[in-house]
Simulated assay, not measured.
Amino acid sequence: MMSLHGATGAVEHGGADGGASLPDHALWIDLNDPTAEEAARVEKKTGIRIPSRAALSEVESSSRLRRNRDGLSLSTPMVTFDRSDFSLKPLGFLLTADHLVTVRFHEMRAFAAVRKRVDDGDGDGTTSTRMFLLVVEELVDNLADLLEEMSGDLDSLSTRIFDFDSGARPGARKGDTTAPKRRDLALRRLLRSVGRHGKSLAKVRASLLGLARIIAFTKGECQQLLGEDELPRFDTLAGDIASIDEFETRLSETVQFLLDATLGLINIEQNNAFRVLTVVSVVGVPPTLVASMYGMNFKHMPELDWAYGYPYGLALIAISAVVPLLYFKAKGWL
Score class of each variant (00 low, 15 high):
residue 1 M to H: 15
residue 8 T to D: 12
residue 11 V to I: 15
residue 13 H to Y: 10
residue 16 A to N: 12
residue 22 L to A: 12
residue 24 D to V: 01
residue 25 H to E: 15
residue 27 L to M: 13
residue 29 I to F: 13
residue 33 D to H: 09
residue 34 P to I: 01
residue 36 A to K: 07
residue 38 E to Y: 12
residue 42 V to N: 02
residue 43 E to F: 08
residue 45 K to H: 09
residue 46 T to D: 10
residue 48 I to T: 04
residue 50 I to Y: 01
residue 51 P to L: 06
residue 58 E to R: 07
residue 61 S to F: 12
residue 61 S to Q: 14
residue 64 R to I: 00
residue 65 L to S: 00
residue 65 L to T: 02
residue 68 N to S: 10
residue 68 N to Q: 14
residue 69 R to S: 02
residue 79 V to P: 00
residue 84 S to L: 11
residue 86 F to G: 02
residue 87 S to Y: 07
residue 88 L to W: 05
residue 90 P to S: 08
residue 93 F to C: 15
residue 96 T to V: 11
residue 105 F to N: 04
residue 106 H to E: 13
residue 106 H to C: 09
residue 106 H to P: 01
residue 108 M to A: 11
residue 112 A to C: 08
residue 113 A to C: 07
residue 115 R to Q: 15
residue 115 R to D: 06
residue 116 K to P: 09
residue 120 D to P: 04
residue 123 G to W: 04
residue 125 G to S: 06
residue 136 V to C: 12
residue 141 D to M: 08
residue 141 D to F: 06
residue 146 L to C: 10
residue 146 L to D: 13
residue 151 S to F: 01
residue 152 G to N: 10
residue 153 D to H: 11
residue 154 L to I: 08
residue 154 L to Q: 02
residue 161 I to M: 12
residue 161 I to L: 15
residue 165 D to M: 05
residue 168 A to F: 09
residue 168 A to S: 13
residue 171 G to D: 08
residue 173 R to K: 11
residue 175 G to F: 02
residue 176 D to L: 06
residue 178 T to E: 12
residue 178 T to A: 10
residue 179 A to N: 04
residue 185 L to A: 14
residue 186 A to W: 03
residue 189 R to A: 13
residue 190 L to W: 00
residue 191 L to A: 12
residue 193 S to W: 06
residue 193 S to H: 13
residue 194 V to Q: 00
residue 196 R to D: 14
residue 196 R to A: 10
residue 205 R to F: 03
residue 207 S to M: 07
residue 208 L to T: 00
residue 210 G to R: 01
residue 215 I to H: 01
residue 220 G to K: 04
residue 221 E to Y: 06
residue 221 E to H: 04
residue 224 Q to R: 13
residue 224 Q to W: 11
residue 225 L to I: 08
residue 226 L to R: 03
residue 228 E to F: 09
residue 230 E to Y: 12
residue 234 F to V: 14
residue 236 T to C: 07
residue 238 A to H: 01
residue 239 G to A: 14
residue 243 S to H: 06
residue 248 E to S: 14
residue 249 T to C: 03
residue 250 R to A: 07
residue 253 E to L: 10
residue 254 T to C: 07
residue 254 T to E: 14
residue 254 T to K: 12
residue 268 I to S: 05
residue 270 Q to Y: 06
residue 273 A to I: 14
residue 276 V to N: 10
residue 276 V to S: 09
residue 288 T to H: 03
residue 289 L to A: 11
residue 295 G to D: 01
residue 297 N to P: 03
residue 297 N to G: 10
residue 298 F to Q: 13
residue 301 M to D: 08
residue 301 M to G: 03
residue 309 G to E: 00
residue 312 Y to H: 11
residue 313 G to L: 07
residue 313 G to D: 04
residue 314 L to E: 03
residue 319 I to L: 13
residue 321 A to R: 00
residue 322 V to L: 10
residue 323 V to I: 11
residue 326 L to S: 05
residue 326 L to C: 07
residue 329 K to H: 06
residue 333 W to S: 08
